[in-house]
Design a protein around this nucleic acid. Structure first.
Lengths: 155, 155
DNA sequence: CGCTCATAGCTGTATGATACAACTGAATTA
DNA sequence: TAATTCAGTTGTATCATACAGCTATGAGCG
């Protein structure tokens, strides 16, 4: 690394650092906070329920594509969730190969509980942030995710 | 979820959502981008090298504590890195039980390469962001990490 | 000194999330 | 209709991680 880094490169390096750190801390937080809510609904199940809730019932492939996961991963995740009564599977009327996955009321309830717990956690963590900073963080994270997603998807 | 959520609660929910999403996308990006740089240095090794580089040589326990990882995890990670010549282990002169881990030149070089690749990636992803927004993102992520860390550490 | 207890690190073993490859059966197309 | 593509599943492998149990060293106390 020569030291002719521009201010912009430094900023990018900082973002890189902080995202890497956030991944690690997020993992750790998820584990540490797993006293109650998290153990009953693992990361992937939560994200799947969130997506079903927002985007509506859909089949395994659609889910996999949307979540950047392999179909087999989603299959297993979904079958575990089915075993636990969190989702329902109905044959896709339009395609005999497909199965449509939809959240059950129990699933939605579980999702909401985890969401509430996490929201509470963030309220705690960001207790002394100004509403303004919180809003800006939410906005920028959203834009970052959009950008990452755009980069990932058009493979 | 009753709908008496305050604006603040909504913001927290958004942050929660975006962080969860970022974790997923970050994973996916790491995997997808793994064409060259990432396959030679996995996530944990990278973070360990970064930390050694910044905070200086230290023993396994210190690393584990700092990274919120179990000692056994770090042991294995470190021994893989040792096998690959990325770090050196010297007996701790002050404590016969301990081993001090330090990055080798090869390790630092590898780390720098990954870092550069990631920085480039972010430059690409955030190509059309204003310098201002990038700076703000870096700042807020930093503060978020500090807050998460503070929450995690004082166990 | 010689116990006893705490600590550093390692190894065994288990779990969870993930991918890739191979397969089955249904849909689409030539 | 035969060939091809696609949806979903199952087999198998990998990786990161944790927890429990072990060994050896260090520290404090009688």
């Amino acid at each position: 690394m020569s030291d002719d880094a521009t201010a912009e490169e430094i900023t990018l390096g900082r973002i890189e650092t902080e995202v890497a750190l956030l991944m690690r801390l997020g993992e750790a937080t998820r584990r540490a906070t797993g006293t109650a809510e998290h153990r009953v609904l693992d990361r992937a199940a939560y994200v799947i329920l969130r997506h079903l809730d927002k985007a509506g019932p859909q089949n395994v492939s659609a889910l996999a594509a949307r979540l950047n996961l392999d179909g087999s991963t989603v299959t297993r995740q979904v079958s575990a969730m089915h075993r636990d009564g969190l989702i329902a599977r109905t044959p896709d009327p339009a395609d005999g190969r497909g199965t449509v996955i939809s959240p059950t009321p129990a699933g939605l309830q579980r999702m909401a509980a985890v969401q509430a717990a996490r929201t509470r956690l963030y309220g705690d963590i960001l207790a002394n942030w100004s509403p303004d900073d919180r809003g800006t963080l939410a906005d920028l994270l959203h834009r970052l995710n959009e950008a990452l997603d755009a980069r990932n998807r058009p493979r």
